[in-house]
Structure formats: C-alpha cells, structure tokens
Design a protein around this nucleic acid. Sequence first.
DNA 1: ATGGCCGGTGGAACCGGA
Length: 268
Amino acid sequence: MKIATFNINGIKARAQALLDWLDEASPDVVLLQEIKSVDEGFPLEPFEDRGYNVATHGQKSFNGVAILSKLPLEDVVRGLPGDEADDQARWIEATVVGKQAIRLCGLYLPNGNPVEIDAGGAPVEGGKYAYKLGWMARLKARAEALLAAEEPALMAGDYNIIPQAEDAARPDDWREDALFRLESREAFRRVLNLGFTEAVRSRDPAPGLYSFWDYQAGAWQKNNGIRIDHLLLTPQAADLMTGAGIDKGVRGRDKPSDHVPVWVELDL
DNA sequence: ATGGCCGGTGGAACCGGA
C-alpha cells in the first residue's frame, strides 16, 4: 500500500496537476493539505472517476485537508482534539483496511510566523508562534493515544518543521524562523521520541532531501529547498515499511505546488 | 550580483503562506 502526503496549495488551481501525478504514481492513499476550499468546492468527480474515495475537512480560503483512498474510508474524524475554540481545518483521520487495518492521520501544522516572543523568550499568547506550539502539544497528546493502541498508524502531512540542519539547503537562513527555531524542533522531537519512525529519513541518511521550494527568488532553480513534509509511523506501521521517497520532479512541472509528494510503501 | 511568487477573494488590492 502506497501512502503519500502532498500539500497541493489550492485544489481548484491544482486539480489537473494532482490528477497527472495520481495517474503515474498510483498511490493507494493521498493525504492532502492546503486544499483552500470548503467541502462543497472540492472537485470530486475526476477523483471518484479514478476510483478514489474522498473525505474532506475544508474551510474558506485557507488551510483545509483531505484524504483520497482507493479503499473505503472508515471512521472519519475531522479536527485535532484538545481545543474546542480552534476552528482551523488542519487535521483529518480515517481507517483503511488492507491485509490489516491502519489508522491514517493527515495534518497541516501551523506555520508559526511571525515569531513573537516576549523579553523572557516565551511565545506571546495569542500570537501565531504560540498557536503553533500549542497545536504541537495537542499533536503530542493524539500521538500518545495512537501509540497506546499498539496498531499500525501514521501521522503525515505538512509539519512546517525542518527537523535538522541537513534538511535545509541554507540552514542559517532559517535559524530564527518558526520552521527551524529550537522550540519548534524540540516539539517535533518530543513527538518523534515517543516512538515514531520518520519514513524518509529512516531509509536515507543523505543531506539534500527537500519537499518544498519557495516560489520566490528562484529557489527551485537553485535547489534552495527545505524538508518539511513528513510521514511518522507507529512501530507497528514501521515494521511494514518497504520503501519511502520524495517525488521531487513534480516541482519542475508547469503550475506546480511549492511542495512535492512524499510517500511510503507499507506491506499491508 | 541581484531580485525574483502564488492562490483565493472578489472584482482592486490584500491576506497568508514559508
């Protein structure tokens, strides 16, 4: 079973690009981020024509996540638990059943910029950086529950986290950015250290693996990228992993997203 | 060497992204 994550940056503007990639990569499941659409605006027909079931959790203009799956989507849950006041559409999960069942969580973690911290270094309450770190604390709680189930599961999506310096072409440019600041990396590490395996890095230790290249300043042409899209597997899912990769070439096509698909192959 | 974008909204410039 091939499971991918792809920040599509607008499903209506990117439907054809996504369909082209689906036709050649044939993933069984795709976790989408930044659909930038309400549920009713998602163009279902071409995906259903290709045999995908679709579950969406959208909102107007921004954010929005979705799952495409060739297998039926069961027990769909929308929204990350832990804050009833959070109305941003950044989390969706569902179960699919192959040889065995796997719980799939798709996420669009807040960017967190601009970083607002007070004189003592604490994130300013109500600011975007505090929202990011608070969201990551909620993510950790959900991650602990997934691990406690001791079953195959994954949490994948646009984490907006550069885990280590080798995950950026120019790490010095990101030192104080919300994607790479120490608090951000520590929060990501706390989740990983619960016992997750990050699919791509676990299989390839090489630097220079990126999943995002900015539209600005010729970032793609200079290969000035960062790796911020990740697939985190529970031990029971990691034991089934047979491959993982990044479809870098997608970034070089016409009208691309600024992210590319990242995928894992599981024996189930 | 330097600077460089894009989608959505709504109907012109902004907002938000990373």
